[in-house]
Each structure stands twice: as C-alpha cells, then as structure tokens.
Design a binder for these strands. Structure first.
Lengths: 202, 202
DNA sequence: ATTGATACAAACCAACCAGTCTGTTTTATC
DNA sequence: GATAAAACAGACTGGTTGGTTTGTATCAAT
C-alpha cells in the first residue's frame, strides 16, 4: 500500500498539534482531534511521542522555536541600525507572518502565559528560548553602538528585555480587539521609546 | 443546623473559582475542584450559576474587574503627575498586591490571552474592561497636560494603549523566570519612555 | 528468504468532567 | 403555622480524554 514515511508522519503530527495548541492552548488541545486532523491513529501518536506533554515539548522546540527565530532573530542578524530594523519589522509583520499568527498572536508567549506556572518542563524550555531572544537583541544593540546608531551608555540587556516584553504585550493586547488603533498606538510609541536610544535625540 | 447565607455561598464559589482560574486558567479550572475547595456540592453550584462559562463571566466581572480597578484605576484617580504615579505604582506593586498576583501575573491578561479567541462572551467582556482602563489612563494623561506634567502634543490615547500593553507584557514575561533583572529592566526602560512625555526632556 | 525491529491501525479502558435529577432542609410571606 | 419558593446535598449520567493493548503490515539487515 502507501509507502511509509516515519519522519513525515511525525512532522504532520507536530504541525497539526502546533496549529491546535496555537488555537486552543496546550490544555485545550485534544490528542484525538490532532489525530483526526492528521488522518492518523493512536498507534502512530504513541509510537512517536510518549505523552501529550512530550508532544507539547516537541512542538515548542521543533515548531515554535524555529518560527520565533525566523521572525525575531534571523531578520536582525546582519543589520546595523536596531531602531530602524525593529520598526521595519513591526511595519512588515502583518504581511510576513502566516494568518494564524495574526489571529492568535505569538505562540511562544501564549504557551508561556498558559503553561509556565503549571509545568516545569515547559517553563525551563520557554525560559531558555526567551533568554536566547534577549541575548540576540542585546547583541544587536551592542553592534548598534559600535556602528554609531545607539548611544554608548544604553544598557543593551535591559533594553532588550523591555523591548521583547513590550512587543509581547502589544501583540497580546491587540489580539483581544484586533483594533488598528491599538496596533498603531504600539507602533508609534515604540518608535518614541526606541528613538531615545539614538545618539542624537537631544 | 448552620444558618444559610446564599450571598456568602455565592461569594465563596466566586473567590475559589477566581483562585483556580488564576492558577490553572479557565479551561484548566475544574468545577469539582472548586466545589471541593469550597466545601460545597453540585446543587449549590448550579443553583447560583447556569454553567462553568457563566461562572467564568461572573469571576471576570465580580472578582477580576474590581481587582484591576483597585490596582490600576483607583490609585491614579486623583494624581497630577502620571509619570511619577506610574513609576511609584511599579515600585510598590510587589508589596501592594496579594502573593497570587506576583505568582501568576495579571488575571485579566491571563484570561484575555487564553479565552478571547475561544469564547466571544469572554472576549467582549475583556475588551470592555481594557477599554475602561485605556480611557482612565488617557484621562490621566490629559489631566497631566493641564497640570503641566505632560507635553501638550502627546497622544494620550496612544500612550495609554501602549503603556497598558507594555505593562502586561512586562508582567507576563516576568512570570516565566521571576528574575529581578527582568523586572528592573522593564521598570528602568519604562521610566525612559515615560520621561519622553514630560515637557522638559530636551 | 528469514527474522527482528519499526511503524503503524484500531479496539479498548479507566478516570474524568460538566451538567442533571431527585430529594431535603431552610427561609420568607402571609 | 401553613405554604411556596429558595438553597442547598448528593447520587447519577453520558460523553470525553489521555493512555494502553493487541495485532499487523512494512522495512532493514543478514
């Protein structure tokens, strides 16, 4: 019959689970529903994963992590002006990301808010991912200093932490109303904040 | 036997449910567990509430709403300098709120992120609450203008929206690690942003 | 070709969970 | 004090859920 492809089976489970977790949360995701949508059976699931939590961890590391990196890390890898790059990212975010992202917000932060206090396995993985993000942004601001786009006395680490937190907050609040004023407000005020990091803002 | 007190019974259900929702989310909250912790039975529950969702709405409006108002609206009702008041609030937040708030973050935003895309009943109630908050902060900034603490050209509405979003983001990210650096970073950078709203920041 | 491991299908299970139903006690009203 | 409504207690139900078990077809190695 149809030739087997374990890797593809596993990947299909991961992708379906990712979509379900994004839409309903980890607790709201149903294993049966993932199976139904994947066209698979229990045997396939528990062959590739030990438990629902195991699947959740895999989704986090193999789906969410790459997506966060592609949206928030990779685009900033080779830029000189952090302020400009961040504002560009905000302006293009709507078109660059899949519809599910606009609909349900950041999958990393969603999972963080839901699960970090309920499951230590999730918490440590999420915390690690956030740390990478913080370090990447901090490095970006440090490079911005060298290139003369950022004031030398700026605390790159603190700025990085705040920018990430503010971004997640903006995405999260926007999700509730989907109101353009909310997004424009965040974009404009983030621009105000970021401009304070420039050398010649006096 | 013990004299009946319907209002108190209802209140006990609400308080227990609030704690459970705050800790496990609405979906994670179990009616049976709320009953057990309240020392009540199914009869009591479905006499006071029509369904689990009905209880969730009541918790939102009768527990979460007053708490948000007491923490984020009332303290700013009679102040002149929004920047100072907001930074004071941040500095005293740790001591002013119950331990469960430090542990699990803002119950309004938690519920917003979990349920706003899953249940329209929750979404509209949460959106309404956020709007009140936005309007209150916007009014605060307007008053700040009149008193000379805020630049006249500031977009109060936009600032209000961004400050709330940033606050929720900071609280949410902090929840994952409980790291003091994260909180200090948000506090210091929020101060940087807020100082741009002052008249004499050039 | 045989064999053992891999990759599933599919029936099955026990616990769980929101909600119902029946009955009983308390309370308010007259 | 009779009566009806309100405020519960507690057993029960039917569907759901994560997980198990058994069986079977495919695949890789010899």
């Amino acid at each position: 019959m149809a030739t087997r492809n374990p890797q593809q089976t596993r990947e299909r489970l991961l992708q379906t689970a990712f979509a379900q977790m994004h839409a309903h949360g980890f607790q709201g995701m149903r294993v049966d529903e993932v199976l139904k949508l994947s066209g698979l059976q229990k045997g396939a699931f528990y062959h590739h994963f030990n438990s629902k939590a195991d699947l959740g961890y895999a989704v986090l590391e193999e789906q969410i992590k790459p997506m966060v990196e592609s949206v928030w890390l990779a685009p900033f890898a080779n830029i000189d002006d952090p302020v400009q790059a961040l504002l560009d990212r905000l302006d293009n975010l709507g078109e660059d990301i899949p519809p599910a992202m606009r609909e349900h917000g950041c999958p990393l932060n969603n999972l963080a808010q839901e699960m970090s206090k309920l499951d230590e396995g999730f918490r440590v993985r999420i915390a690690t991912l956030f740390r990478h993000w913080v370090e990447a942004f901090a490095a970006m601001f440090e490079k911005g200093k060298q290139k003369g786009f950022i004031r030398p006395d700026v605390d790159s680490q603190a700025v990085s932490r705040f920018v990430i937190a503010a971004l997640e907050g903006c995405i999260g609040v926007y999700k509730v109303e989907q109101a353009v004023e909310q997004w424009f407000a965040c974009r404009s005020q983030l621009a105000v904040y970021l401009s304070t990091l420039r050398p010649n803002n006096g």
